[in-house]
């Protein structure tokens, strides 16, 4: 991931502002713009294959891809496109389980809203990159999967699909990923947005299968700060969103062990994905998700 770009963007990218933006489109533009503002200062390096066509320069494009001869003739910046670039497909798998519809007092949006904003940003970004984009929702299984396409109409269809709310039931991530593995295009980049309330070992078969299909897997582990820190002060009566089960407990009594379990789970998940040459990025809903786009871009360039 391009951490430098992310940190520079953070200077003017604010999670408060992101949360106040009224529509997914604006949120997506906000994120992409913020991300690209830092990206200009940080060149990405890609590989060069056979030329296919020119397109207009977009912020974020590599300067080495600029066709300087055309610039000399026309005084306009054009990018030399290669075949592979136009064939790259990114598949976004969004966990819309009930647990994603959680927002604590420390967060400004629910995990689902956060995921949607991030997914919209990805859609916008990918559309500008002219990458094909697929979208799927993870629920009790793979609820809906829209295959990849780079057409503008497809982009709008996907953006419309993001407006659906979170589900009211638990999700079955391993099963959903197993189904998605059959649906995603080979040699694509698979972006999974979830809180990953599942045993990392149970995810392994589906993730391996994706890897066998030569897919790059990037997991965005989206958690509310309260889920990470468990900073309840008073005894609480908790209701699980996925099952409506109740549990009365003392946060002081279990906080340390809870944190340790969360950390262990994260490490196990990261290790599981790292073994498959993927990335697992923790995103807190009280921080802007700048690292997400950077991670994708790094993977994309590495694949090209």
């Amino acid at each position: 991931m391009n951490s430098r770009a992310a940190s520079l963007s953070a200077e003017f990218l604010d999670i408060d502002l992101l949360a106040r933006l009224p529509s997914l489109e604006l949120q997506a533009k906000f994120l992409v713009t913020g991300f690209l503002a830092g990206l200009h200062r940080s060149p990405f390096h890609g590989s060069s294959v056979e030329f296919k066509e020119h397109r207009d320069y977009q912020p974020g494009d590599e300067l080495r891809s600029v066709d300087w001869k055309v610039y000399a003739r026309t005084d306009r910046l054009h990018i030399r496109l290669r075949d592979d670039e136009t064939n790259l497909t990114a598949s976004l798998l969004l966990d819309r389980s009930a647990s994603m519809d959680y927002r604590s007092h420390r967060a400004l949006m629910t995990k689902w809203d956060y995921t949607r904003s991030l997914a919209a940003a990805f859609l916008l970004f990918l559309q500008r990159q002219r990458d094909a984009t697929a979208l799927g929702f993870i629920g009790a299984g793979l609820e809906e999967f829209m295959p990849g396409s780079a057409r503008p109409s497809h982009y709008h269809r996907l953006m419309a699909a993001l407006h659906r709310p979170a589900a009211v039931a638990a999700s079955a991530i391993p099963e959903a990923l197993a189904v998605a593995a059959d649906r995603v295009r080979h040699r694509s980049i698979v972006l999974i947005f979830s809180d990953f309330y599942a045993d990392p070992a149970a995810l392994a078969p589906a993730l391996k299968r994706l890897r066998y299909q030569d897919c790059e897997v990037i997991c965005f582990h989206i958690l509310d700060p309260m889920e990470l820190d468990f900073d309840f002060e008073e005894p609480v009566r908790l209701r699980e969103q996925e099952t409506s089960a109740l549990l009365t407990l003392s946060p002081d009594l279990i906080r340390d062990e809870y944190r340790r379990r969360v950390t262990d789970h994260r490490k196990a998940l990261e290790e599981q994905i790292r073994q498959l040459d993927g990335d697992c990025i923790l995103l807190r809903t009280d921080k802007p998700p700048l690292s997400a786009l950077g991670a994708y871009l790094a993977r994309r360039n590495a694949r090209l």
Binding site: D195, D224, P235, R237, L238, R239, E240, L247, T248, L253
Partner: peptide, 26 residues
């Protein structure tokens, strides 16, 4: 004083194993 109302929480994925044992001791 019992907790008033219910506080939603995403999942008891990490709490079940922890709380069950701790609450008995508690």
């Amino acid at each position: 004083k019992r907790p008033v109302g219910e506080t939603p929480f995403p999942s008891f994925f990490f709490l079940h194993a922890t709380a069950a044992r701790k609450q008995t001791r508690n």
